[in-house]
């Protein structure tokens, strides 16, 4: 009893961490989430960069992407907080504000598209929570992880709350912890749990050391809490935690943190018995040996 979604890949998943894509394509159909490709989708566009430079361009590009899903007659599904932030906000604005919609459509007309507002934009976390439910996930798990996880919600998944009533609390949300515990893992309480990873808003691209210093606090906090790995639902957070860890180490000449990083679909894949290689888990900068050893 599944449902099909228009899969929006964004940039980082297909172009830097394809393991997340591979994991999703293998794992999600097994729990009733059908994925149909959005042919010709582009960058969402990235909320931190494009929106910072030109809002009209951001809106038009986002509208074009949503149009592709509208033409497929399916809701958009994304597993990136940034893409979710952009597409959900753009969809909401375009549906609600006539002037904005007309403006975007005047741009889209040139390429033969028109935004109708006929589909929704969902993040994987919401779909897992509401449609699959933690119980559904538990049922699909064959190899409970038995690990300690530092769950990282990220920012654009849950804020601003006014567009995301489904998340509940933004200070102390629980849904991702529930989804993680359904994998047979223990979600640990860590001091900077809700803090930003530091990558967004164009900060990582332009002022890397500032973004890494924000990352540093997260890593120290995860380590102190005794986490075996950090779990995320966004490839940018994933990249920041993974590649950023190594960059931090080199920049400030530090001891390696040795804190593996997994996107939820990869963790789910492992819990459903898939191997680390087919999920791209071993393609991270930070070697996952510590957790793989514990798992086997």
């Amino acid at each position: 009893m599944g449902r099909e979604y228009a899969l929006f890949l964004g940039c980082l998943i297909p172009n830097r961490y394809p393991g997340i894509e591979a994991a999703a394509r293998k794992v999600l159909p097994k729990i009733g989430i059908g994925l149909a490709d959005m042919k010709g989708a582009s960058c969402c566009p990235a909320p931190g960069v494009v929106k910072s430079f030109s809002r009209p361009a951001w809106l038009a590009m986002a509208a074009r992407n949503i149009c592709i899903a509208e033409e497929m007659g399916l809701d958009v599904l994304t597993f990136c907080n940034g893409c979710y932030g952009t597409l959900a906000e753009a969809n909401h604005s375009l549906r609600g504000d006539r002037a904005l919609r007309d403006l975007a459509n005047s741009n889209l007309k040139e390429i033969g598209k028109a935004f109708k507002g006929s589909v929704g934009v969902r993040h994987l976390a919401e779909v897992l929570l509401k449609e699959v439910t933690p119980q559904g996930i538990e049922r699909a798990v064959t190899k409970p992880l038995g690990l300690k996880v530092a769950v990282h919600y990220g920012c654009h998944l849950i804020k601003p709350r006014v567009l995301r009533e489904w998340v509940g609390s933004t200070e102390r949300p629980t849904f991702l912890d529930e989804l993680t515990e359904a994998l047979g893992a223990e979600s640990v309480d860590w001091e900077d749990k809700m803090a930003c990873c530091g990558a967004g808003g164009g900060v990582r691209s332009a002022v890397l050391d500032v973004s890494l210093r924000m990352l540093n606090r997260k890593l120290l906090s995860a380590k102190e809490a005794g986490a075996d790995f950090i779990l995320n639902v966004c490839p940018f957070c994933h990249l920041q935690f993974d590649r950023g860890q190594v960059e931090l180490q080199r920049l400030y000449n530090l001891q390696p943190y040795d804190m593996p990083v997994l996107h939820y679909v990869q963790a789910l894949g492992l819990a459903m018995g898939y191997g680390p290689h087919e999920l791209g888990v071993d393609m991270n900068f930070v070697r996952p040996d510590r957790i793989l050893n514990k798992l086997s």
Binding site: M38, A41, S42, P56, A57, A60, M61, R64, E278
Partner: peptide
């Protein structure tokens, strides 16, 4: 990983890339 070498995005579809570039030009980006 058994995925297509290029993802089914603008990387694979030149027509779509052209459309995106149109928009970026149109909006003054």
């Amino acid at each position: 990983l058994g995925l297509g070498e290029l993802p089914p995005t603008v990387h694979q579809y030149d027509g779509a890339l052209f459309d995106v570039q149109q928009i970026l030009k149109e909006t003054g980006f």
